Amino acid sequence: MSTESAESGSGSRMTVTESAAEEACRLMESEGMDTDVSGLRLFVQQGGCAGLSYGMRFEAEPEEDDAVVEQHGLRVFVDPASINYIGGSTLQFEGGLQGAGFHVENPNVVSECGCGESFRT
């Protein structure tokens, strides 16, 4: 398993924490997905009060032009348009009393909405 940041197609770096990789792989395996081929798609879409929001879903394989980041046994697929917004980000998994979930720590964000669900770069 890789423990270092991987290069995306655009040369920007993205990091996946070990806890995020473990949780995503656990969820994919529970859905019968092969983690050697399948992965977590991370994308940016229009929406939210600040203009942009993150989306995530599991996919069986990457698209031809995706950047594929592999760390800690997890493959993350990012399309070329989204990598421009999330290059340099860290994908984390946070648990706690307020609820658990995946979080993107993005150094490109200049402002976020009050609820933290959308952002602007």
Rank of each mutant, 00 (worst) to 15 (best):
S2N: 14
E70N: 06
A60Y: 12
Q92P: 05
L91S: 05
S5K: 10
G99N: 05
M1A: 15
Y54E: 10
P62S: 06
L74I: 03
C115R: 12
C113I: 02
E61T: 06
L74D: 04
T35S: 09
N106V: 02
G73T: 02
S82K: 01
N108M: 09
N106F: 03
A6Y: 08
H103G: 11
L91P: 01
A6S: 11
H72P: 02
A6C: 12
F77P: 03
Y85Q: 10
E31K: 11
V68F: 03
V16M: 04
L27E: 14
V37N: 13
G87M: 12
E64M: 07
L97R: 12
L27Q: 14
R26Q: 13
D65L: 10
E4M: 10
S82Y: 03
C113T: 04
V110M: 13
A100G: 03
Q46H: 14
S19V: 11
T15S: 14
L91E: 07
L40K: 03
H72Y: 11
A81G: 07
L27D: 12
V16H: 02
G32F: 00
R57M: 15
G55C: 08
F93C: 03
E23A: 08
A20H: 06
D66H: 06
S10I: 05
E105W: 06
E63F: 06
E117A: 13
A81N: 08
F77D: 01
Q46N: 14
V104I: 07
L97E: 15
L91T: 05
M28N: 04
T121M: 15
H72R: 06
G9K: 10
G95K: 04
M56L: 11
P80Y: 01
S12W: 10
Y54H: 07
E31T: 09
T121W: 08
M56W: 01
N84R: 10
E94A: 10
E22D: 11
C113A: 07
D36L: 10
G101W: 03
E70R: 08
G87F: 00
V16R: 04
E112Q: 13
G114Y: 09
G88A: 11
F43Y: 10
V16T: 02
E105N: 08
M33G: 09
E61V: 06
A100R: 01
S12M: 13
Q46E: 15
T17C: 03
S12E: 11
A50D: 05
S12G: 14
S82D: 01
T15M: 14
V37L: 14
E7R: 09
S8G: 15
E94G: 08
